[in-house]
C-alpha cells in the first residue's frame, strides 16, 4: 500500500530509464519500416543517402506505377488465393490430426508426433528438387494448386504441434459430458472443441497464411509465367539480378505488408495464448 503512494526516487529513475530504453528500442525497430515508406513515396529509383524519414519530393509515382502499370492485382489475387487456400487446408488437416494426437492413444501416436517434429529439421534445399519433380509430375507447375499443396504440407507440422498443445489444455470432461448428452464425435469436434480452440486456430491460420504469403523460393521455382507469379516473386524481381528499382520495391513492400500486418495485429490478442497455452501448462 505504502509503496504505491510513495514511489522511491530510485524506482522512479529506473522506471524512467526503462521507459527511455524501450522507446529507443522501439524507434530502432520501427525505423527500417518507416524507411521503406520514405523510399516508396520518394521519387528516385534508387536509395537515398539521408537519415531523414521524409522524402525530398513526395510523390505517389511508385504506387501508381506498380498498381497500374504492372499486373499487380493479378499477383495480389494469386497470393490471396494461395494463402487463403493454404490456411484453410492446413488448418483443417492440422486440426483433425492435432485433435487425434491430443485425445486418443493409438499405436503409432508417439512416432507420428516425433516424425512431425523431425520434419522441421529437413533442410529446404534438399526438398526443392524432389518437390519440383513431384509438382511437375502432377502437372501443377505454373499452377497455384501446386503451391497450395506444397505450402499447406510444409505448414502442417508446426500447426499440429501447436494445436495439439492447445487441445491438451481443454478438459476432456467437456467432451465426455457431450458424449453422454448424445453428441457424436464429429459433432463434439465442431461444436465444442473448435469453438474453444479459437485462439490457437486463429494463430495457426495466421502462420499458415504467412507461410504462403511470404514464401518466394519455391514460388520462384514453380512459377515461370509473369502472370502466375505470387507477390513475393514479383517483388523480388524488382531488385533482382536484372533490375534495381528500390522505389517500386518499397511501394510493393508496403502494399504486400499491409494486409499481413493488419491480420497479425487483429489476431495478436490470440497470439500469446494460442502460442503458449500448450507449452506452459506443465
Amino acid at each position: 500500500m505504502e509503496k504505491k503512494n510513495k514511489r522511491s526516487f530510485r524506482e522512479r529513475v529506473i522506471g524512467a530509464l526503462l521507459q527511455f530504453f524501450i522507446l529507443l528500442f522501439t524507434i530502432g525497430t520501427v525505423y527500417p519500416v518507416l524507411w521503406v515508406f520514405k523510399i516508396a513515396f520518394g521519387s528516385q529509383k534508387g536509395l537515398s543517402l539521408s537519415l531523414s524519414l521524409f522524402p525530398a519530393q513526395p510523390t505517389l509515382e511508385n504506387f501508381n506505377h506498380i498498381l497500374f502499370e504492372k499486373p499487380f492485382f493479378i499477383w495480389l489475387l494469386n497470393s490471396l488465393i494461395v494463402a487463403a487456400a493454404t490456411s484453410v487446408i492446413g488448418i483443417f488437416l492440422a486440426a483433425t490430426a492435432g485433435y487425434a494426437f491430443s485425445r486418443f492413444r493409438f499405436p503409432g501416436r508417439t512416432a507420428g508426433l516425433l516424425s512431425f517434429l523431425i520434419t522441421q529439421m529437413f533442410p529446404g534445399t534438399l526438398m526443392m528438387i524432389p518437390l519440383y519433380l513431384i509438382v511437375n509430375w502432377l502437372g501443377l507447375l505454373d499452377n497455384l494448386a501446386g503451391l497450395v499443396l506444397v505450402y499447406s504440407t510444409s505448414a502442417i507440422p508446426f500447426s499440429i504441434w501447436m494445436l495439439k498443445g492447445y487441445f491438451d489444455t481443454i478438459p476432456k470432461e467437456l467432451e465426455e459430458s457431450a458424449l453422454i448428452d448424445g453428441a457424436s464425435r464429429t459433432l463434439i469436434f465442431y461444436k465444442i472443441i473448435l469453438p474453444l480452440a479459437k485462439p490457437a486456430l486463429a494463430v495457426t491460420a495466421l502462420f499458415s497464411f504467412m507461410t504462403a504469403w511470404n514464401e518466394y523460393i519455391l514460388a520462384a521455382t514453380f512459377m515461370n509465367r509473369e502472370l502466375s507469379y505470387t507477390l513475393p516473386v514479383a517483388l523480388r524481381n524488382f531488385v533482382g539480378q536484372f533490375a534495381q528499382d528500390w522505389g517500386l520495391f518499397a511501394a510493393g513492400a508496403i502494399l504486400v505488408s499491409i494486409p499481413i500486418v493488419a491480420l497479425f495485429f487483429i489476431l495478436q490478442k490470440y497470439l500469446v495464448s494460442g502460442l503458449t497455452a500448450g507449452s506452459v501448462k506443465g
Binding site: 465426455e176 453428441a183 465444442i192 474453444l196
Partner: peptide, 20 residues
C-alpha cells in the same frame, strides 16, 4: 452400448460446463 444410448446423465466433479 455407447454413452449416449444408455439414457443416463452425469454431473462431473468440475461440472464440465461448456465455456462458450
Amino acid at each position: 452400448v455407447p454413452p449416449k444410448d444408455r439414457d443416463l446423465a452425469m454431473v462431473f466433479q468440475n461440472y464440465a460446463l461448456y465455456p462458450h
